[in-house]
Nucleic acid binder design. Sequence first.
DNA 1: AAAGTATAGGTGACATGTCACGCAATGCCA
DNA 2: TGGCATTGCGTGACATGTCACCTATACTTT
Lengths: 177, 177
Amino acid sequence: MSRNANSGAPAPEGGWLDGEQQRAWLAYIRVQLRLTYEMNRQLQSDDDLSLPDYDVLTALSVADGGLMPITVLAAQIGWERSRVSHHVRRMAKRELVSCSPSANDRRVTEVSLTQHGRKVLEAAALGHVELVRRLFFDGLPRELVGPLSQALESVYANIIAQGTLPPPVDWRPPRGE
Amino acid sequence: MSRNANSGAPAPEGGWLDGEQQRAWLAYIRVQLRLTYEMNRQLQSDDDLSLPDYDVLTALSVADGGLMPITVLAAQIGWERSRVSHHVRRMAKRELVSCSPSANDRRVTEVSLTQHGRKVLEAAALGHVELVRRLFFDGLPRELVGPLSQALESVYANIIAQGTLPPPVDWRPPRGE
DNA sequence: AAAGTATAGGTGACATGTCACGCAATGCCA
DNA sequence: TGGCATTGCGTGACATGTCACCTATACTTT
């Protein structure tokens, strides 16, 4: 087990991950693949929404005034801007969101939740949350919820720091170190 | 559906997740979205492989004889069979894998790693693992690796039990570990 | 053995995601 | 004020993923 302290050089350099890390990584990948698939499927068949649709609606629903520039939205949900651009156009065609140019800065397109979009989201949230609880939390022992959060939050902070996408607007690195 | 195993009834029934769960879920979603994006991007630009390509190659590389029926492959990596079918056809066009009918059961298509495919995978693995270490494990305190594995393995077992996709062929429900 | 059922896989239409690139509005500065 | 880089987005071409449905082969029953 833990033969090495933290961020020294615990891994076989230039090679693989060590045993413990490999176990964690395999578990992560497996969960990720199936969970994404299942969520997509449930939303699609129950609510006629894709998981990406749902991500967009959720982000907008918690935004101030249910309204957000495309760039900000992209940073919130970790997408490229062009992906957001394509996607909101399609969603606008389905009346889930609407896009309008900002008066302030005329380069900016503000994406907002429509009445219909909000209703669809509220309807979908129930089933989605139920699925998440059933697939994810029903399998997760109570005492591991905290450590899991801590672990993933650490990882997230690191991804923000090291990755190529900009952080969400409200992001601040967790407690000093 | 399964009854609530936690006698404390911590979750608002039919409603949202409780506070701790919400925290875990938000962390999970954030990590998932960005990490997937970054992995895809790195493989694409460094090795001319998509993340799905990599998943397929990896699964085949650990298979007995580097060879696997489509259905088995699909179960291993948590895809639908038709997705695998489409994808391996494209990969075959790029000489990364090859498909041939099984002599045993003539419904079966065996997918196998080509020499070229194996070389490409080996070349890509270095950079990919490096990225995983940098983005994921460099941000993860040593002492949380174990709990994280445990948590995700529990979740995975539950997803297998509750989900719609078949388990991998070598999967057995975890017994006290 | 004929008929019915289950299983492996493929296909076509369509939605989605990515990349490279383009345009227009803005900011900067000599 | 006239360049010139920067920023916010959109677009087109193409790769990818999903669903509904199809065929062929194997298995089971009668």
